[in-house]
């Protein structure tokens, strides 16, 4: 039933007008622009000071390629390790009620706020040659972890896993658990439910978490240098190479930094397009 209500329109004004919202407050705009400059300028500086003419040549130097290869391999293996351990851990935190769950969740995030150097020291104390587990590992299997490539992977995984766990746990909490109930009514065991329903449904969260985890592992410095040292070819990853080059050969440091920057930007772009902005 349509009774017409008279339309109220201010006299002497066009109906279609621009929305007037007042001036932007400078108290917000000025600090905002300063903040933006603070974030962007150092990156711009990197680009400005880059030795563009000799870039390709420097990139092709064996020690650069070596460091890059080591970084990529270690970060990838660390990410795989984080996936294998972190996804089940995230599932446990999101789906299973157990006493002390909040404490466990807090513990998982500790490496996130812990200074990486401290993480490296902690790793040494436990897995070092005289460490709690390390001396046993060496005696029983002859395995030494510190100052090896495996040590690099360990240090990176330690620092990066919280990113994966938090991302996956968030995805699990956001996923509608009734789909899991529906799967149970169809005769699926909890393992089958996880494999065939839960995991495919939280896959975007797992991928996003894995990418973050990988990026964090790629940039790891503190824990790596503390626990794994700085040996070319086995433990000198890109960030370590950058730091080292800065003291002897600043231009090489810039080149290495550019490579890391490029990798980060590519990751960020792929993450946004595929997993953040997609419906």
């Amino acid at each position: 039933m349509g009774s017409h209500t008279p339309q109220i329109r201010p006299a002497g004004r066009p109906a279609a007008g621009r929305e007037v919202r007042g001036r932007l407050p400078w108290m917000l705009v000025v600090p905002a622009l300063a903040g933006l400059a603070f974030l962007v300028l150092p990156l711009a500086g990197l680009l400005v000071r880059a030795p563009w003419p000799t870039l390709i040549e420097r990139l092709a130097e064996p020690h650069v390629l070596e460091a890059l290869r080591l970084s990529l391999v270690c970060a990838t293996i660390a990410t795989v390790a984080c996936l294998l351990l972190g996804v089940p851990l995230a599932w446990l935190l999101a789906r299973v009620e157990f006493p002390g769950r909040r404490v466990v969740r807090a513990l998982v995030t500790v490496p996130l706020v812990l200074p990486p150097v401290v993480g490296g020291v902690a790793l040494l104390l436990v897995l070092g040659r005289r460490g709690l587990v390390g001396q046993w590992l060496e005696a029983a299997f002859g395995v030494t972890l510190p100052f090896t490539s495996a040590g690099v992977i360990l240090a990176e995984a330690f620092v990066a896993m919280p990113f994966l766990v938090i991302s996956v746990e968030g995805a699990l909490r956001g996923a509608d658990q009734r789909f899991e109930e529906a799967a149970a009514t169809l005769g699926a065991s909890r393992w089958t439910v996880f494999r065939r329903v839960t995991l495919p449904m939280v896959m975007p969260g797992v991928v996003a978490g894995a990418v973050l985890c990988w990026a964090r592992a790629l940039g790891e410095f503190g824990a790596t240098i503390t626990f794994a040292g700085n040996f070319p070819g086995t433990t000198r990853t890109m960030p370590l190479a950058v730091y080292l080059a800065l003291e002897t050969e600043p231009e090489a440091a810039i080149v290495l930094s550019l490579v890391l920057l490029a990798v980060s930007v590519v990751i960020l772009a792929s993450l946004r397009d595929r997993w953040v902005n997609s419906p």
């Binding site: 009734r178 529906a182 009514t185 169809l186 005769g187 065991s189 495919p200 449904m201």
Partner: peptide, 30 residues
């Protein structure tokens, strides 16, 4: 999962990542 039941939910809860066929085949597979 051990009860001999079948359930139709209010909003169906069809698994979004599976085709209609695989949704129906899910139970027999289990």
């Amino acid at each position: 999962e051990q009860r001999p039941i079948g359930m139709v939910f209010q909003d169906y809860l069809l698994f979004p990542h599976l085709s209609a066929l695989d949704n129906v085949a899910f139970g027999p597979r289990c």
